[in-house]
Design a protein around this nucleic acid. Structure first.
Lengths: 118, 118
DNA sequence: GCCAACTACTTGACATAGAATAGTAGTATA
DNA sequence: TATACTACTATTCTATGTCAAGTAGTTGGC
């Protein structure tokens, strides 16, 4: 349902999600795209994820290591650095507090509509 | 607390909030900045809100009328158009569903931490 | 009547980050 | 060696928030 013209809404959230996912389990770009699709973000493309990972690496929030694959080119596995975990914690708090405000405002428009996103 | 380096997190959300606020009550730019500050978004500047309103107007999502003020220049009062209300409804649904996913993911990082953002 | 202060809106240069698209390269299989 | 799938890289475009400055109307002190 919906989630077709998010575009801007994803800004800033994607890097947070990526940090979270690799913090749950070391992962590589291609797989991260699939994991994002699995949790419902089906419109996120490789061309969005790879640059985001490169940004995170350049900023020192994730570290990467190449691991040979038996089904294609080597995979670049990412895991958060200490700075990455800090950023994730801070970013999560940021997002939570903004979401609380936004949610409180926008929720008024959906008086008692059942949500199935949980 | 926090809400200091949101920057990107606000993308797309601001126009939604503006549509919501003027849909609650017709309002003008200067006042909208103050209303945003009141609900907790204290870092939003005029230079952010006015261009956002101009964009919404250019896109036909809000209409504006000038009303003379007794304490300064004329105020430009905004209210949503039909397209604006549609955009608000669609955008709210979009945000809610994204927030559900993001919240479900990120919430795991804060097992039982009390939130005071409500 | 002029100047300061406050209200309110406008504008333009800038940075960030996601979208779109294409391209490169490794492995396997036929 | 050609095809298909996996996986990463590179380039360009665009939307939108930030920053900073500026315009203009009203009021009040002097």
């Amino acid at each position: 349902m919906s989630s077709e013209h998010d575009s801007q809404l994803l800004k800033g959230v994607l890097s947070l999600l990526l940090l979270h996912l690799i913090s749950e389990r070391e992962s590589y770009g291609y797989e991260l795209v699939q994991r994002l699709h699995q949790v419902g973000l089906t419109e996120i493309l490789e061309g969005t994820v790879y640059p985001a990972l490169a940004r995170l690496e350049r900023e020192g929030r994730v570290s990467a290591r190449l691991v040979a694959s038996n089904a294609g080119p080597a995979r670049k596995y990412y895991r958060p650095t200490v700075a990455g975990r800090d950023a994730l914690t801070a970013g999560t708090a940021d997002w939570m507090s903004l979401a609380a405000v936004v949610g409180a405002q926008l929720a008024r428009r959906l008086p008692a509509e059942p949500q199935e996103g949980a």
